[in-house]
């Protein structure tokens, strides 16, 4: 017997590749945004659509937030342009850039 797969209608969940956990591991709950406490794969409180519409932002300090959350935070006077987790001046690592893929 020979079995050939003609068509596979699979179902998969997308995850941000934060480089932290194995995508297929059972650590399914993932991490949450330190600002809004919503999972990264969810969306920030102002957005309705997760994913590309509500992307993540990586800091030099390796902390990750919803981009919208961080921008809002940086917009407040209290932030002093610092990472809300470790109070280091917020900076973007050169190796990461926001990936905006036009679809």
């Amino acid at each position: 017997m020979k079995v050939t797969i003609k068509h596979w209608h699979a179902v998969a969940q997308w995850r941000w590749d934060t480089g932290k956990s194995e995508p297929n591991s059972d650590d399914s709950e993932g991490d949450v945004c330190g600002i809004c406490r919503v999972p990264f794969e969810g969306c920030c409180p102002t957005c309705k659509m997760p994913g590309d519409d509500c992307p993540l932002i990586w800091g030099e300090c390796t902390h990750i937030f919803h981009m919208h959350c961080l921008l809002k935070w940086l917009g407040t006077a209290a932030s002093k342009q610092q990472c809300p987790m470790d109070r280091r001046t917020w900076g973007m690592p050169t190796k990461f850039s926001l990936v905006a893929v036009p679809c």
Binding site: V3, T4, I5, K6, H7, W8, H9, A10, V11, A12, Q13, W14, R15, W16, D17, P23, N24, S28, G51, P55, L56, V99
Partner: peptide, 15 residues
């Protein structure tokens, strides 16, 4: 920036 986690027990296959 993304990866996939397959949900193996869902979906269908034509063989």
């Amino acid at each position: 920036d993304k990866t996939l986690r397959f949900l193996p027990n869902l979906g269908s296959v034509t063989l």
